[in-house]
Amino acid sequence: MQNRLLIIFTKNPERGKVKTRLAKDIGDQKALEIYKFLLEHSRKVTSKLAVDKQVWYSNKISENDIWDNELFSKRLQEGSDLGERMELAFKKGFAEGYKQIVIIGTDLFDLKTSDLEMAFSALDDHDYVIGPAKDGGYYLFGMNSLNSKVFRKKNWSTSTVLDDTLEDLLNFKLKILRTQNDIDVLDDLNDHSALKRLIES
Rank of each mutant, 00 (worst) to 15 (best):
I103Q: 12
L39I: 11
L6S: 12
N3L: 09
K196Q: 06
N69Y: 05
Y57R: 04
D188F: 06
E96L: 07
L195N: 02
R4S: 15
F72A: 10
L76K: 05
M86D: 00
T165I: 03
T113M: 07
S42R: 09
Y57G: 07
D81S: 00
Q180Y: 03
T165E: 00
M86P: 00
T46Y: 03
S145P: 00
E87R: 04
M143K: 12
R4D: 15
K19W: 01
F141L: 06
G79D: 02
I8T: 08
D163I: 10
K24V: 07
K24E: 12
K36I: 09
F172H: 11
D188N: 14
Y128T: 04
T10E: 11
D124I: 13
F37I: 02
Q77F: 01
I61R: 11
Q2A: 13
Q100Y: 14
N69T: 10
K173I: 08
F151N: 07
P13G: 08
L177K: 03
V129A: 05
G142D: 04
F9V: 10
L169C: 01
L108V: 06
T160D: 15
S148K: 08
F72V: 09
N190Q: 11
F72C: 11
G79V: 06
A95Q: 09
Y98K: 11
L6N: 14
L111Q: 11
E117D: 10
D81E: 05
G97A: 01
V185L: 01
M143S: 10
V18N: 11
T165W: 03
F90T: 01
S159Y: 13
L5N: 14
D81K: 04
T158N: 09
L166S: 04
Q2C: 13
H192Y: 04
L189A: 10
N59W: 06
L162Y: 15
K112T: 06
Q180A: 04
L169N: 01
R15F: 00
S145L: 08
A122S: 13
F109R: 12
R178K: 06
D187P: 00
W156R: 03
K30F: 05
D25S: 12
Y35Q: 07
K17I: 02
F94K: 09
V129F: 07
E63S: 11
I66D: 04
F172P: 00
F172L: 05
G27Y: 05
S157M: 12
L170I: 06
M143W: 04
F120H: 08
H126G: 04
M86I: 01
D168V: 03
S73A: 11
R85Y: 02
R43W: 15
K74E: 02
T46I: 07
M143F: 08
K48F: 05
A50I: 14
F37K: 15
K153M: 09
P13S: 08
R152Q: 12
